[in-house]
């Protein structure tokens, strides 16, 4: 299979291998290969979002509905969007605040409801469960852990009162719970990153190695 690869296939594999190795070279120390790849990565990522926004927002939600669908009123968000560019002018940058205020205000309105209704209340609802409502001792222990953890974590992050006495003891339990949770998260994250590293090493070993063998 490797031997039947075209020039373009080889080129794509070598390009990827070069980029991977140049980025990994930073593990030794900062160098021009890494810097070049890093700047290309930053540029491509920015360009990626331009393409994404252009196709999925500007074209699909503004230009096409306005010109093909007759939704003329979309000219107003279009103007608000263009007004954002006044930010580049020293004298007229204040005009962009109107567009920004529209986005911020709208988002605040959505968040005010969704954070309370969709998150805070639902999480409190899910925590307030009967201790004997499940299947035996295991679920009772689990419910106790969850209730203790939620209360002690909230107390730990409550800084308006000094952590002394009962408050201090609860906060102490809270930090133990937090450490266990962060440890679990850390373990998960490490394993995720390691699996990505394995993927890169496999690419270098099988794909790039295969290409090398087929050429030389």
């Amino acid at each position: 299979m490797v031997e039947s690869m075209s020039f373009l296939d080889h080129f794509q594999i070598w390009l990827r291998a070069y980029l991977i190795l140049s980025l990994f070279s930073f593990l030794y120390k900062d160098n021009p290969f890494y810097k070049l790849s890093e700047h290309i990565f930053a540029g491509l990522s920015a360009g990626y979002y331009v393409g994404l926004i252009w196709q999925s927002v500007i074209l699909q939600q503004l230009i096409n509905p306005m010109f093909d669908g007759g939704q003329w009123w979309l000219v107003f968000p279009g103007i608000l969007g263009i007004l954002m560019f006044t930010r580049l002018s020293r004298n007229y940058s204040w005009i962009s605040r109107v567009s920004l205020a529209f986005v911020i205000g709208n988002t605040a309105g959505i968040y005010l409801v969704s954070e309370l209704h969709g998150k805070a209340i639902r999480q409190i609802w899910a925590t307030m469960i009967p201790l004997d409502g499940g299947s035996g001792a295991a679920s009772t222990i689990l419910a106790l852990i969850v209730i203790t953890g939620v209360i002690s974590t909230l107390v730990y992050f409550y800084f308006s009162k000094e952590h002394k006495g009962l408050m201090g003891a609860t906060a102490k339990i809270g930090i133990w719970f937090i450490m266990i949770s962060f440890g679990a998260h850390f373990g998960y994250t490490v394993m995720g990153r390691i699996s990505l590293l394995i993927g890169r090493i496999e690419f270098l070993y099988y794909d790039w190695g295969g290409s090398l063998l087929s050429i030389f």
Binding site: A108, A120, Q123, S152, T153, L154, F157, I180
Partner: peptide, 29 residues
Amino acid sequence: VMNGFNVSVQRGIIIGAALGAASMSLRII
């Protein structure tokens, strides 16, 4: 560990962050 200790802390953090976000939203409005 995952569904007990971890979930309880995440829940505490989510409740705290949601209350913070809601109050900040109200301040903006």
